[in-house]
Design a protein around this nucleic acid. Structure first.
Length: 281
DNA sequence: GCTGTAACCTGTCGGC
DNA sequence: TGCCGACAGGTTACAG
């Protein structure tokens, strides 16, 4: 599932196809994803040139020379495919290929000679086009918490956002207003890395006592470390067994050195949580 | 205002 | 083999 590391890696791939290029043609294969495309979406994009491709949390933001911003969110199953543009007549029908392209919802033909296709079987993705000066007021982007890999995200910033929050730590990490870009997988991973129970009340990390301060410093370090490591993974390292310490490892021994616990699974905030009850407190 | 939960959606997997 | 239900998860809407 695309969380911050996956979106960042995708951004680095898309930069080459999009930056400096113009949208020669935009094809929408349906009228909506999770929400309808804004009126005139394809027409408004056509002819526009991409100045830069940024990421904010799990959102990809294509800054256009005109000052508009193309907002893209992958949802649960969205992904982009980059291919060299080929004339339609030369494409041959291929049943496997048809299966792969069944959920191609948006096709960008770029002046770079690349075709960038958005494929999203579950259609939880989002695309929107807004003026740059409306970005801060955007209903979701405008409320996002700090970027976890930025200097702005430190123990003090975390304390401010967890203060008075009477929800679990796991639920807090999933709240994009607390910190942007973490999803179900990396929330479990970071909490295990920090040796903090996913069931602990979020506000207990906001206190002035040194134990609370120590815990939130561990959590900030764990979040940064887990995300950086995931971003740095190469294509060949993507096997889940190599990537995750607790996620989808129910029943396996806890990987923390010296811990004799077993990874358990619980249902929390409507999501699966993987944790070790022995070393996560 | 805050919190928890259902709903959206479709591919996959296990059980029958 | 085929059908059916459960499950996965990011975000939003809604109820309490």
């Amino acid at each position: 599932m695309p969380e911050l590391p996956e979106v960042e890696r995708l951004r680095r791939t898309l930069v080459r196809a999009l930056t400096g290029a113009r949208f020669d043609h935009v094809r929408l294969n349906r009228a909506d994803l999770r929400a309808p495309f804004p009126p005139g979406f394809a027409r408004a994009l056509r002819g526009q040139r991409v100045r830069a491709l940024r990421r904010r949390g799990k959102y990809l933001l294509a800054e256009l020379v005109s000052g508009d911003i193309l907002i893209m969110h992958l949802g649960m199953s969205g992904w982009f495919r980059v291919e060299k543009t080929t004339p339609r007549a030369r494409r041959r029908r291929d049943p496997n290929r048809d299966l792969e392209t069944r959920h191609d919802h948006v096709v960008f033909s770029m002046s770079s000679g690349k075709t960038v296709t958005f494929n999203d079987p579950r259609r939880f993705g989002v695309m929107d086009l807004v003026a740059a000066n409306h970005l801060a007021g955007h209903r979701t982007l405008g409320r996002l918490g700090p970027e976890p890999l930025s200097r702005a995200f430190d123990a003090d910033a975390l304390a401010r956002r967890l203060s008075n929050r009477r929800i679990s730590l796991k639920a807090a990490l999933l709240d994009q207003r607390v910190v942007a870009g973490i999803g179900n997988i990396y929330a479990s991973e970071a909490l295990h890395h920090a040796r903090l129970s996913p069931f602990r009340l979020a506000s207990t990390l906001a206190g002035a006592r040194h134990t609370a301060r120590d815990a939130r410093e561990r959590l900030v370090d764990a979040i940064k470390s887990v995300l950086r490591r995931a971003i740095a993974l190469k294509e060949g390292d993507r096997a889940r067994a190599a990537r995750f310490r607790v996620y989808e490892r129910e029943g396996e021994p806890c990987p923390t050195p010296g811990c004799r616990g077993t990874i358990a699974r619980a249902w929390q905030a409507g999501r699966s949580t993987f944790y070790c009850a022995t070393c996560q407190r």
